[in-house]
Design a protein around this nucleic acid. Sequence first.
DNA 1: ATGAAAGCGCTAACAG
DNA 2: CTGTTAGCGCTTTCAT
Lengths: 328, 328
Amino acid sequence: MATIKDIARRAGVGVATVSRALNRSGYVRPETLTKIEQVADELGYVPNRQARAMVNGSTQTFGILIPDMDNALFMRIVRGINDFAYPLGYSLLVMDSRGNPERERRICRTMQELRVDGLVLFATPGTANLLTTLDRTLPAVVIDRLLPSSDVPQVSVDHYKGAKDAVGLLLSVCQYPPAMISGPEQVTSSEARLQGYRDALRSAGVSPKDERIESGGYTYEGGYQAMRGLLTRGRSLDGVFAANDLSALGALRAIRDVGLRCPDDVRVVGFDDIEATRYVYPSLTTIRQPMDEIGRVAVDMLVKRVTGELVEVDPVLLAGKLIRRESC
Amino acid sequence: MATIKDIARRAGVGVATVSRALNRSGYVRPETLTKIEQVADELGYVPNRQARAMVNGSTQTFGILIPDMDNALFMRIVRGINDFAYPLGYSLLVMDSRGNPERERRICRTMQELRVDGLVLFATPGTANLLTTLDRTLPAVVIDRLLPSSDVPQVSVDHYKGAKDAVGLLLSVCQYPPAMISGPEQVTSSEARLQGYRDALRSAGVSPKDERIESGGYTYEGGYQAMRGLLTRGRSLDGVFAANDLSALGALRAIRDVGLRCPDDVRVVGFDDIEATRYVYPSLTTIRQPMDEIGRVAVDMLVKRVTGELVEVDPVLLAGKLIRRESC
DNA sequence: ATGAAAGCGCTAACAG
DNA sequence: CTGTTAGCGCTTTCAT
């Protein structure tokens, strides 16, 4: 692999001149520059970023720690990060921890060893812990879920407001107060969505009843069972807000299995806007999370912190968008 | 950021000893080792891989060039790569070209500048070209689709055989010869699947007729239109093989829209096993591509090439698996 | 406008 | 067992 030394020798100049020429820093006589570029080309020279990084400190890479690459929503965020980071000259080091805290720790370590310029962490139960391990000088931003308390910048979706909007829609078209298929406990997004549901009902002058809330655990199967429970239990049910699309899809199936029809008999609204929402029958009305935007904001924060700018520590909450389809 | 020099000074030893101690290479007196580790710990020392890479040549990173991070199938492969590369100590540099050839070129360049130890390229129309640009000494493997001719190792799915299996199933349960919703032309996977369909019919003593093949272009909308065409055109149709799941999903919708039922009236088999196949009604019978396996094989090839082992240049074709669900 | 030289942090001989 | 030293490829003063 050719180095600037090789180029220097071949072009009959010093290495410093080659460096200046290739980087267009400092003065270089035009002819010298041409000559150098030509030689570099001949030799198929590819600069070594490691070496460059050693002297000027920046590797121009961001690290992304993600708990599951197979999660389409996560990847949409990563793609957003990619799209915004790329024009800025940043490359992405992406590692999947598979939700394993030990792996998370190791990956973070590796990324520090690789001297990434910044770190994007998808929040997991282990994240708070992880942050204490991290070098405080390494710019980091936590994404997707909110950490209870932290001085690290955070970007997430406004689950609460999204839920309120979803329930608002149901309230406006249903005859009875909508039921809810809730998500797992202890998960901030899930809790915020549940709270949004409750408050939306209250705003409409309805007091939320526990028997109209069934847990679906964010899963398809859970949503299915929850819906069946709701359906057998109570009458006067013509609308359901599911905490996420997966459980909404399960609900759709349950509705069909008991011989009812959506939206005619029961309307359903989900949350997330996963790909399948468009392909099922009826297609699912849902709250779309602004994934690209999350990526953009995250990169923005990172870049600011890299350049030394101050970044507000208050978590940024981005609004979701109601997407109406056939199910409501 | 602490360096081995800092540790050396503080521990009262030479830098070489520190290096030996921390890497457990060469002899170090046990007490010295303990002392060094303790100091390293105190200083919060994190080794600099760039520096290490400069001397021993290897960065322990693989580059992944992917045309669309939002494609769940692609990401499943990447996750497979991650899972197999991680235990081997490799980190992944993942960049999304968004299918843009210019970007592809630039990303490849960047990865070479970053001195990745190997490169995984998702095949795109521009890949063949790209390969000519690449340093021949950089281990690379092309994935997902097959390049017409190339001396680079390749891993892909046996689309042909998968299609034959799918059609075989249809033949065994349908009364009439199945129709096909084909994919885009000029795409190797699509062509292989079409060929598999034709050959499966022939093996069964049926001569494939063009009027029973309608293009769906691998899209949902395309599949929908293709199915409607098939349905209005001919009678004696009770089975369809769609070149991919997306178009199969479109077909499902078309069947419903004209008032028919699947699988009762028309059976459908897709290809890919995307996530939505499980959530639609009826759930979709399809051919699952062995994504994890693709990742495993790719990493395997890369590692072999890195360690200098020879790798067969014959493309590796992995078999898909028939997943039976409700649609057939 | 350009070259010599001093590192960046680390490893690998090579002497003790 | 351990310290000294010479780079790895590149950027950046500092002279010239």
